[in-house]
Amino acid sequence: MAKLARRNTAPRRHVAQEITDLIIRKLETGVAPWQRPWRSLGASGRPLCHQGSAYTGINAIYLWAIADTAGYRSPYWMTYRQAQELGGQVTRGERASTSVYFNSVKRSETDVATGEETNRVIRFMRSYAVFNADQIEGLPGYFYVHSDPVPPPPSEHQAAIDAFFSPIPIEIRHGGDRAYYSPTHDLVQLPLPGAFKSIDHYAGTKGHELAHATGHSTRLARTFGKRFGDDAYAMEELVADLTAGFVGAHLGLPNELIDNHASYLDHWLRVLRADKTAIISAASKAEQAFKWLSAFSEPQQAGADETDEADDGDQVTDEAAEDAQIAA
């Protein structure tokens, strides 16, 4: 009796869904991997195959997203076998990423009733396991990034940028591939200036993160309380973005820097739709943050830094909201 073929009980991979899910997760974190305000260190341009040709389409976007998540510096990707052929060895414990290949084949089919033969095009997708060069040991040196990128040329706004940011007494550290403010250590972490598309982009990102730092308990002690609840984080991001917009306008930076910060649009829309006065509170907090930052380079006259406030515990009335809109 012939043995029955063993069925493959392993769950079927849905590669397209995996790719889609990662892109969604990246967007949900607020950073589109193809629109970062700074270049991935050593990996500007498209991801590259082992022989130097560029990945295209969804492969480029997907590998960008993976490199962005993992912090890979090399632009090169290859299969396990390709790495071995180049004298390399995948580091133990490293996990592969997915590269997809689309193609089509023609299949001849004969109609049983008429005998007519037709050709049918069948499109298919295959997936391959690939590793970034940073996950592989022993490759030729050109696969790795050995130095930091060359700093971009100075901005035409350089003098204003330096005058504005230099006196601000908040610690700024450089390195890595992330920009953030750490409330625990009360410091701003930024990639090296040379990792940004331009000094203007670097200044715009610095303004955004310093805006977060103004909310520290030793400065403006910014909180949003019960009024915004779970949306307090979205409100803080909105304040930081508005503050960065004020900084950018003050320094004459390009408008595109402000657009690049619009990462939490969906969250902001939810907050603003639920509370029509939320934007008034956010603008007020942003104005306070901007004045705090700018006071070190342009000291205000006594009383000149007073601003209308809509504190988190205050519910701005319809009449007050209308007045605020008229005043704006």
Rank of each mutant, 00 (worst) to 15 (best):
R219I: 03
G207Q: 00
G204W: 00
K197M: 05
G194A: 06
A211L: 00
A203K: 06
G215W: 01
D200H: 05
A203L: 02
K197H: 15
H212R: 05
T223P: 05
G176T: 07
A221K: 07
A203I: 01
T223C: 12
S198K: 10
K197V: 02
K197A: 02
P169S: 07
L220E: 06
A211Y: 01
I199F: 15
R173H: 09
T218M: 01
G215T: 00
P183I: 04
E209H: 08
P193A: 11
R178T: 13
A211G: 02
H201G: 05
T218Y: 07
I170D: 08
P191E: 14
G176M: 07
P183A: 06
S198A: 15
D200A: 06
A213L: 01
K206R: 11
H216L: 01
I172G: 13
R222I: 13
P183K: 11
I170R: 04
F196G: 15
H185V: 14
L220A: 06
E171D: 14
G204S: 15
G204T: 02
A221P: 00
T205L: 00
D177M: 13
T223M: 12
G215I: 01
R222Y: 06
R178Q: 14
H216A: 12
G194T: 04
R222D: 04
T184S: 14
I170K: 13
D200S: 10
A211I: 00
D186I: 06
H174K: 10
H174N: 14
E171V: 10
T218A: 09
Q189P: 14
P193E: 02
T205V: 10
G176N: 12
K197T: 06
T205D: 01
L187I: 10
H201M: 07
E171S: 13
L190G: 14
T214H: 02
H174D: 12
D186W: 08
H201K: 07
H185W: 11
L190C: 15
R222T: 11
P169V: 06
V188P: 08
